[in-house]
Design a protein around this nucleic acid. Structure first.
Length: 582
RNA sequence: GCGCCCGUAGCUCAGUUGGAUAGAGCAGCGGACUUCUAAUCCGCAGGCCGCAGGUUCGAAUCCUGCCGGGCGCGCCA
């Protein structure tokens, strides 16, 4: 498979040598012009050299173009345009070759697998297990999962991971909150814990607990007997036994139960949203394996730690942070920060060559101290990459929804999926670039109508399927596309589809490299639009004379192929048929 | 006050990493279904790309300063 950009780059370099310009002097850029009339690829070389050589760019472009030696079977034409662009048009036969290469197991999609199987850890969502997954996590889920698949597509071995904060204060608070709800149901006078979790889900959980005996609880826990959830453990007996234990112990029992239930919800929600985590990493494991102490010890050995005011501090100012940070509180408890250091260090020790974390915008101030800790531990610079996903604001009835879990007023991911469906939600999140704030209007998303662009993509795929199905019903032999069959492709609208389809490998590479999975959503929409335009323009494809018809059907086969590929990457189902809307 | 992100059509957002005449969907107006799925397509209208400077052949994109919005600045997680 020849890479056309390489051919052009070499030819351009050879052509400018006569002006005393060599490889090390200039970077040759080739890009696809916005306007189809400007050709398939464009170089701004003459514009860049014009000033340096004190020449008029347009004249220079002409001289460069005249000196180019290019294979005519691949490059059909070279034109000078505008202020001095050199535009290249790729021959149809080569475009067809590029198109067919997409479906070839050794073709263009194989050529981009340059990652060499390097293991990359991608961590996202990692919500506290104190309530159902908030809809804010849906954006992280859509992005993280798509990036994981993109990295696999370019030859890495990407590994999706979820960190479970099942230790520490908030779990105790969760236990206390559930216990309070439970005792209230029994008519006992109890004070609800300050800052406790007030969501209705805990009231419901308490009511459920009232009816559950120890066997039912054990059975519920048995659902977690798979690899990633070995750490779920349940208290003995049932709630009637727990409530009379000494308070500390009692709270622990309720906490364990709540944790089991909530992780069950979260796991189910993720599954429903199409998220597959290879690892659910439990914070409690860090405590048990003494990794937290060991990390602290290692930091101490590096001289990055000191004691003051009864607490243990990390010298994060040495690493560019604005102040030093506490690792162990005056009461002897490790901070969340220290646990997080131990967690990431263990991630490094587990053999990942690179790690990507998706964090919310409220954690951005946390980056310098985390990177500082990694540096102090001797982790190579750049090993940990932190991507900030900007905030989502949900709007309902024109009002902004407060998503605080403590107050219990939030929209769950499940509610979102109930109302708009997982695919619609995923696509809407994936359409936006990661570092822009996003207003999500629930009322708009609910309308199963034209505001849902994902339907347009699905519809285009279903249309392609339907066309091929009817062709088969009429006994038209379609088979696999070949250079010979596609050589009869004449319609301009069909070629517009081809030019977009062949971009697939490049779109995958750039989306993965820039960590901007949203480009895939835009690409899918572009293909759907072009395919629909083509479909409307050609009309009655099956009634065309056989050679033209076969070419059009083979283009349809390739369109279906690309839409499916993109659908797999963004986790959106591409249906064979859509229900007719009246 | 300091740090990060954002400011593009009435609304929600793209803009291929500095390119040629700034795009799409929705909303508005006008067209196209005896036809392989009209959840589609075609056309019209809509813009000081927050403002002001700078960098250069060339800026929505990079730099500086303002203005406006969001988030963060705990021995919380």
């Amino acid at each position: 498979m020849v890479i056309i950009e390489d051919i052009l780059r070499r030819a351009l370099l050879a052509a400018v040598e006569r002006f005393g310009v060599f490889e090390e002097d200039v970077e040759i850029e080739l890009e696809k012009p916005r306007e189809a009339g400007h050709g398939d690829l464009s170089s701004n070389l003459a514009l860049m050299l014009g000033g340096r050589l004190k020449r008029k760019p347009r004249e220079l472009a002409g001289e460069i173009a005249a000196a180019l030696e290019l294979p005519r079977d691949i490059i059909e034409s070279v034109e000078i345009a505008g202020p001095g662009f050199i535009n290249f048009r790729i021959s149809r036969s080569h475009q067809i070759e590029r198109l067919l290469s997409l479906a070839d197991p050794h073709g263009a999609l194989e050529a981009i697998r340059t990652g060499g199987g390097k293991r990359i850890n991608v961590e996202f969502i990692s919500a506290n297990p104190t309530g159902p997954l908030n809809v804010v996590s849906a954006r992280a889920g859509a992005f993280g999962m798509t990036l994981t698949r993109l990295l696999d597509a370019i030859g890495f071995d990407a590994h999706a991971e979820y960190y479970v904060n099942d230790a520490g204060r908030q779990i105790k608070l969760l236990g206390r909150s559930l216990r309070a709800h439970y005792l209230q149901l029994l008519g006992e006078k109890v004070e609800f814990p300050e800052n406790g979790y007030k969501g209705r889900y805990l009231e419901i959980m308490a009511a459920e607990l009232l009816a559950q005996d120890s066997k039912a609880i054990r059975d519920a826990g048995a659902a977690f007997d798979d690899e990633s959830f070995q750490r779920i453990e349940l208290p003995c007996g049932d709630a009637k036994d727990w409530k009379d234990l000494p308070e500390e112990e009692s709270v622990g029992c309720f906490a364990k139960y709540a944790l089991m239930k909530i992780l069950g919800w979260q796991r189910e929600t993720c599954r429903r949203f199409g998220l597959r985590f290879e690892t659910w990493y439990f914070e409690s494991e860090l405590h048990e394996t003494r990794r937290i102490e060991r990390a602290l010890e290692k930091l101490r050995k590096q001289g990055a730690v000191y004691e003051a005011e009864d607490a243990v501090w990390f010298r994060s100012t040495d690493f560019g942070d604005e102040k030093d940070r506490v690792l162990v509180r005056a009461d002897g408890m490790p901070t969340y920060f220290l646990a997080d250091i131990a967690y990431h260090y263990h991630k490094f020790q587990r053999g990942f060559e690179h790690a990507i974390d998706f964090w919310g915008p409220d954690h951005h101030g946390y980056i310098p101290r985390m990177q500082g800790a990694m540096q102090a531990l001797g982790v190579p610079e750049g090993w940990l990459e932190i991507q900030i996903l900007q905030q989502v604001t949900f709007i309902e009835d024109g009002r902004v929804l407060d998503m605080s879990k403590r107050k219990g007023q939030f929209v769950t991911m499940d509610a979102l999926m109930d109302e708009v469906g997982a695919d619609v939600a995923k696509f809407l999140f994936l359409m936006r670039k990661p570092n822009s704030h996003l207003d999500f209007d629930l009322d708009l998303a609910r309308q199963q109508s034209d505001v849902n662009p994902v339907l347009k993509v699905k519809y285009a795929h279903a249309r392609a399927c339907s066309l091929l199905r009817i062709a088969a019903e009429r006994g038209i032999e379609v088979g696999d596309p070949t250079p010979g069959s596609l050589a009869h492709l004449e319609d301009e609208s069909a070629w517009a589809v081809v030019r977009e389809l062949v971009r697939l490998p490049q779109v995958i590479v750039s989306a993965a490299a820039s960590r901007e999975p949203h480009r895939l959503a835009g690409y899918a929409l572009e293909i759907a639009t072009l395919f629909n335009q083509f479909y409307n323009q050609v009309k009655r494809i099956l009634d065309q004379e056989p050679e033209r018809r076969l070419a059009l059907l083979h283009l349809t086969v390739m369109t279906r192929f690309v839409l499916r590929k993109v659908g797999e990457l963004i986790g959106v189902d591409m249906p064979e048929a859509m229900e007719k809307r009246d």
